[in-house]
Every structure is written in C-alpha cells, then in structure tokens.
Design a protein around this nucleic acid. Sequence first.
DNA 1: ATAAAGTCCTGAAAGC
DNA 2: TGCTTTCAGGACTTTA
Length: 258
Amino acid sequence: MPELPDVEGFRRVLSDCGRRCVTDIEVCDAGVLRGVTAKRLRKEGEGRRLGEAWRHGKWLFVPLDGCPTLVFHFGMTGSLWCCSPDEPFAGHDRLVLTLDDTRSLRYRDQRKLQGVQLADESAVDRILERLGPDALTVGRAELTDRLSARRGAVKSALMDQSVIAGLGNLLCDEILWRAHLAPRTPARSVGEAAYRRLHAAMGRVLRTSVRAGCVPPRRSWLTGRREDSEPRCPRCGRPLCSGRLAGRRTVWCSHCQP
DNA sequence: ATAAAGTCCTGAAAGC
DNA sequence: TGCTTTCAGGACTTTA
C-alpha cells in the first residue's frame, strides 16, 4: 500500500496532532524497531514534544524536540493512525504513542518488512543521501537528467529510490500508462517529448493520489483494473498485458504504450 | 502453495 | 582488461 501518497497521508495524521507531548510509548512488538531498543526509545522519546513531521519519498521523519528524530518506513503494509486511547488495539499495532494522555498514535504493520528508528542528524543524512529528489516536487529537467543517465528499463529507473524517491509499483505503472510509454523502454532512449509527458503524468497522478491519501482505485485509472480477472485498458478497451519487470508485476497496454 | 503496493543484499551480466 | 552500473533473485514477514 504505502507509496508516496499514502505516506503523505500519514504525515497529515501527524500534522493534525500538532505539537503535543509524547506522554507514553508502548512497544507492542519490538520486531519493528531498527537500531534502537524499546527501553532507549521510551527513555529518549517520552516527555518530548512533537515537531513538524516531514516526508521524503516513502520515509516519514518526526522530530522530537531537540533529540533524535523518529523515522518511520511503512514497507508494504504499514500505516499510521490517530485515535482515542480507549480504542482497543488492532491486531498489528506494533508501536503506540500516547499524546498528552488524550490521543493515541498507532504504527500498524502486518508484515514487519521495515520499521521505526531513532535517528540523529547524521543518521537522517545517511537515509537522505541514498534517495533521489522527491517525486512530488522534482522538476522536469532534473527528472529527465536523472532518468536518461540510466541504461535499463524506464520502469526500473522510476522504481529506483536513489533516482526518484516515492514511486512504487502501482504508481509507476499508472504514470507510464498515462505517458504512453512502454515500461521496458530503455530510459536513455526515451525522447524529449516522452519525458515531457512522463513528468506531466507523474505530477497529475501524484497530486490526485496525495489528495486521496492513496492511489485511488478508479476504473478510469490503470490501477483500478489490475485486479480484474481479464483486465482491459480503460482508454482503448483492449486486454492489458501483464508481466514481470524489476521483480514486480507490471501491467501495461501494448496498444497505448508501444 | 502462491503472491503481495516495501527495501536490502548478493552475484552475475552488461556496458563503457 | 577493469571498473561501474544494472538486473535478477532471494531474504525479510504475514496473510489471504
């Protein structure tokens, strides 16, 4: 689930919590902690006030009032919820922060592929230096430069977080379909006009998805068709192709994406 | 049993 | 030839 738009939604969840104080930290499953023990997390985090949360790609950074930053990654199944402390825990609530004793912030994740860490400034820098510019704000010239430096398929390049940060499997397929670009096209042989289309499609898809807090499962989008038993292109009605690229299921329309 | 929207690591292949 | 980049596959994890 979590690609850039979902993580942006989680950032809003935190933003809506304002500058509340973390009054309690409960680690329900220490398996999600990366490089920090439950004991140290509680010791460092409790009593701290939340700063303004920010996002880069699929990473969410939550500053805690002058101490290390709480860093979330949501893997394939993670999410962040804010509710009343009285709300019973869900099955996969792994970490629960109580805010001002009146709100409960819950990091939920079925599979523990990624997790939560406590990162000082240099650790945050180490995360950021592995990431390309954020997909939501990258300019067309920079996108073109970074993609055209790649030898492999354009989808592989879009998926690579060190090239552009934030796009996942669903978004890449959606964007390529809108840009009339076949996923296996070598990135360096994508022409200027197609890069223009790609950048425009990326902006439109991302802005709509960010508003929705997810890649919306609309029938008019490619994404809305991929679970169909015999998926057809929303634009031309022909059967969609499905294959594997960069280790991921890839769906495209061979007619619209030559 | 298979596959799933995440990343990381490895070894091999490809490109310059 | 040798270095770097890219790819494919597996690992991690849990459940439908």
